[in-house]
Amino acid sequence: MEIVRLREAELEAFLTELWLPAKREMAATMTGYELDERDDVRETGRSHYRSRLADDETATYVGREDGALVGYVSAELRGPAPIFEAVRECHVSDLYVDPDTRRRGAGRALLEAAEEWGRLHDCAHLDLNVDADNEGALALYEAAGLNAERYQMQKSLD
């Protein structure tokens, strides 16, 4: 498994092979998410990740196995409200592994890349959000040493 930073040259393959499948899976399995499959959805993703590539406060790593893209992790630097002591955190905003590659270490390797990036940016900790019903992700994160510290609660307003 090779883990490298996402580059502009592989942006199109990333969008097709990883980003769109990740978002489709998210929409199919999580309450409250519907994928907007309009014609310019790929341009939306392209624009978003191009801005991330140019931003020193974000990082996206891709995993490759035998030359094929098999997963990715996106992270960003965050800090508390200005009234609190400035402690940086590394927030993982996305982690996805192709279903055929799951449970073989790719998710852990991608998470480790985000952790290392956070350490290099003097982050005190790493955090992320996970769907309460995503047993595979929960097992991965718990095995990697993450603990639940808060609960996000929501109520439908429909």
Rank of each mutant, 00 (worst) to 15 (best):
L157F: 11
A86S: 15
L138T: 12
S156T: 12
H125A: 15
E89V: 11
R24M: 04
G118R: 06
M30P: 00
R24S: 04
T29C: 02
A106Q: 14
L146K: 02
N134M: 09
L110C: 01
A59N: 07
P80Y: 06
S74C: 06
A59Q: 09
A144C: 14
V41R: 09
D158M: 13
R104H: 14
N147V: 14
F84G: 00
R24N: 00
G107C: 05
H125K: 09
A9L: 05
A139M: 13
R88Q: 06
A27V: 04
G145R: 05
E116G: 04
D100P: 13
G105A: 14
P82F: 13
V87G: 00
G45V: 00
L111I: 02
G105E: 12
C123Y: 06
M30N: 03
A54I: 09
A13Q: 14
A132M: 08
E76G: 04
G136S: 14
G63L: 02
D39H: 00
P80E: 03
E10L: 01
T58L: 01
E8D: 11
A9I: 05
R64K: 13
L20Y: 01
A106W: 11
R78N: 01
E34F: 09
E142Y: 10
A86Y: 15
D56M: 09
R52D: 04
A81L: 12
R42F: 02
L20R: 07
A148R: 09
L126K: 10
